[in-house]
Amino acid sequence: MTLFFVLVTIVPSLIALGYLIETDPKRRRAFREPALGHERYIVPPLALLVLPGGATLAAGTFGLFVLWFSTLTVVGWIMAALSPDAWRRIGARLEAWTGLAFRRVEGGR
């Protein structure tokens, strides 16, 4: 049951975080990624990022909040620590394994 609640709260936050990481200008510069073709949204992904945590607090489930926040710091670190190249390799492997198209968030390519 705990696992279910953790997934429900963490997945939206991680999706938002993934967008923020992928579109981060300094990260793109540092790894010679092409400039983002469109405007980078800040408020909607940030809202999506913090909303589940806020919901756990509003519901008074402090255990879930701590769990959401701690998972975010650990998984967020791993997501940020993987270079764009590493993500591409993971994407390619997923693509190969599942046969599904691994759609990238960015519009540049």
């Binding site: 981060d24 300094k26 670190w77 940020a80 620590a81 993987l82 270079s83």
Partner: peptide
Amino acid sequence: KDLFVPERPGKRLVSFRDRHALAGTWGLPF
């Protein structure tokens, strides 16, 4: 600004700094 910047390749000094700072930043609250 550096919240999403992973270790820059090349095993240079800056790579070590990136690695430590990134993990340290994310690990800070806990």
